[in-house]
Computed example of a mutant assay.
Amino acid sequence: MKNFTLKSIFTVLALLLAVTSYSQDRTCGMMEYMEEMLKDPVFAKEYEENQKKFKAEVARRLSTDFNARGGATIQIPVAVHFTTGNPADRACLEALAQNQIDILNADYTATNADLSIWNTQSGQYFPGLNPGAANITFCLATSNHPAAVPQLVEGEPAVTIGYNFANGSGFPEFDANFQGYMNFVVKPIGQLLGYSPLGGSVANGGAVILNTNAFGSGSGCPTSGIVPGAPY
């Protein structure tokens, strides 16, 4: 289930994170992190090469794969990692992970409850554009889990609790155990909403990092310190 065809979905998720904050002290940190990382000439060269590959692959898929599939939906397997969660709170955290998946799927099919915001603003900022389904769907992976992570059970959702993703290596965060997954790492990151390296790849186990107050909706899982905060 974790095999994946669209290797640059991280670019899409990174763009989703690149939104304007509704308050002055809570912002998306993606651009700041990218600016810092691009100071490394090795990373900058790799990034440029990956961007070229990504653009070429998008062009190829638009001209061949999509038509060949008859517009079939691409399914993206997700693994969610609560690095500071309480293992006894697993049922709540798994439900919260599914809640975030449901939110993504609603966004990608233009069925989200706050679509009226787009309808109100699109005429001014995006004239002539209308929302529609992206033929992309997300799901919590339930099979082919890495043997190196014993807390994951085949048939159960790919949700880790207390797992030290990427051994705490910092940005950009890659974990070879989770190659082939779309990884969400939920952990405290100060006032940032989240970030992800632009042009990242599921092939190397990369991740989107999200703050504990910017994941899911509703009451969250207070005993694990994962509580969504308005308006995120």
Rank of each mutant, 00 (worst) to 15 (best):
T27F: 00
L17N: 07
I189F: 00
A148I: 15
E36L: 13
E46V: 15
L140R: 07
V12Q: 12
K45V: 01
Y163F: 15
P41W: 13
P127M: 15
P87S: 05
N164Q: 03
T11E: 06
S219Y: 01
Q75E: 12
N144C: 06
I189C: 01
F66I: 03
F184D: 12
V19S: 10
A133L: 10
M1A: 04
A79D: 01
A95P: 01
S21G: 13
N135F: 12
A148H: 15
V227P: 09
D102T: 08
A88S: 11
F171D: 03
P87Y: 09
A176L: 03
E49K: 14
C221R: 02
P231H: 09
P131K: 15
Q179D: 04
Y22I: 05
T84L: 04
E94Y: 10
T84F: 01
F66C: 00
D175V: 05
P87R: 01
S143M: 06
N105Q: 05
L15H: 14
C221L: 05
I226C: 05
N119M: 09
A166V: 00
G205S: 01
V208W: 00
M30W: 02
K2I: 09
K45M: 06
K39T: 11
L16E: 14
N135C: 08
K52G: 03
A88K: 09
Q75L: 10
S63K: 11
I117R: 05
I101T: 09
Q100E: 14
P188D: 12
I101V: 13
L96N: 06
A203N: 07
A203Q: 09
G194A: 01
V202F: 00
K45A: 11
A44R: 14
T137N: 10
A203K: 06
E46L: 10
E49Q: 15
A59L: 11
I101A: 12
A158T: 02
V202I: 07
A56H: 00
F215R: 00
T73Y: 00
T27L: 03
K7V: 03
G155T: 05
T20M: 05
V159S: 08
G132E: 14
P87V: 04
P197R: 14
L96A: 05
L13A: 12
N112A: 13
S169W: 04
N177G: 06
T11Q: 02
Q121F: 13
F82S: 07
Q51C: 05
N50D: 08
T5Y: 10
T83A: 04
L192G: 02
L6H: 04
Q191K: 08
T223P: 03
S224V: 03
M1P: 11
L104Y: 08
Y47V: 05
I226N: 05
Q75T: 12
